[in-house]
Design a protein around this nucleic acid. Structure first.
Lengths: 199, 199
DNA sequence: CCGAGATCGAACCGATCGGTATGATCAGAC
DNA sequence: GTCTGATCATACCGATCGGTTCGATCTCGG
């Protein structure tokens, strides 16, 4: 049932299916936690096909990490846009979305950070840096919209809250992690937006 | 020159030396980034000796992670105690200490989190959870000392800032990460301690 | 001075790793 | 109907993995 036999119209479809399935399996087991042979079995594709599409295991990993980074960032961006124009609502939407992720039974932390923690290879590290760049841009934008005194710094502090909440949810306790981080974020936003306390 | 030949008085010394050296090498290369053979060469010890002391590679990893977790936590605790009685000074001391760590050329993020990100084995995950427990206890104590309205929640939010700052420093940019996190932490502390804003 | 035991170096083990090659099968284009 | 090429299943490759074994060497306690 997987992928399909023969040249089923579409090599691109095969490639997409591989990336899709590999993303789930590699996220669950860890990049080095499963060999190519077993990975292919789980995906339902032959090694020959996988290597023709991606060259090496590393190649597949990079493609899938890039796609995952893009999707997650777009997902968060969409949540922000759906929250309206109030920066406080936008920020709250970020952490509400994160809590939904934390509650997913398959949640295992940020795939890019997990990858960077083990694969010291340069391409993977670059993907992770770009991924955090995307988050930072989104959060700094909210900080700007709120009229923060120093949007880049506030954006970075919010990034720390996002990543910290994700780490705590993944490795300690996910219950209420998003909510607690959201409360903290809103406090920081308020403090940075008021020219002086109680102004 | 390493460890010493024959039964040099002290098997315990050999064991300690192995843990010490393995900690540095495994932190730099990643737990699965180096084989036992090369690891032994770098340490300057024979495989036979390593396996007699630790049974398996996993056994060595667990011993070294436990030791590292204890040391780091004690180091942070000492920094807090040296900062005096003012909770604000104590909290600032935490992030100042962290920034020193981030500036170390060998800094590669939290070893326990890196390990948990790849080794899905239970013992390693347990060590990581205990590690975060230790941080949380320290930070919640500061929150209590500051008379926070809800010390457990504030402690958790501070934990997120600590871990978030470490992630950002390790995988994005270490410059000023500790300082920015410290500013955010102090804002949260103020907000949680004041019964009402500007009270 | 001799035995116990800690260590070393190196050979060795089976398993698994990432990656390649082969031969057959099957779908679609022409 | 035939050719192209995407796919599969399988076998295979050398390298490396974690782990074991062995003989020699050295230190210390008695």
């Amino acid at each position: 049932m997987p992928v399909a036999k023969g040249s089923t119209i579409d090599p691109a479809r095969t490639r997409a299916t591989i990336v899709e399935a590999a993303t789930a399996v590699l996220y669950e087991r860890g990049l080095d936690g499963i060999g190519v042979a077993e990975l292919c079995t789980r995906i339902g594709v032959s090694k020959e096909t996988l290597y023709r599409h991606f060259g090496t295991k590393e190649g597949l990993v990079e493609v899938m990490l890039r796609q995952r980074s893009e999707r997650v960032t777009q997902w968060l961006t969409a949540a922000v846009e759906a929250a309206g124009d109030d920066p406080r609502d936008q920020l709250a939407a970020v952490f509400d979305a994160l809590q939904l992720w934390y509650d997913d039974p398959v949640f295992r932390g940020c795939a890019m950070l997990n990858a960077a923690a083990q694969h010291h290879v340069e391409p993977v590290r670059t993907i992770t840096v770009r991924h955090l760049d995307g988050y930072l841009e989104l959060l700094t934008g909210i900080a700007e919209g709120a009229g923060a005194a120093n949007p880049p710094v506030l954006g970075r502090q919010l990034l720390m809250l996002v990543e910290g909440a994700t780490v705590v949810a993944a490795h300690h306790d996910s219950v209420g992690a998003g909510e607690h981080a959201r409360q903290a974020a809103l406090i920081l936003l308020s403090a940075a937006s008021a020219a002086s306390p109680c102004g």
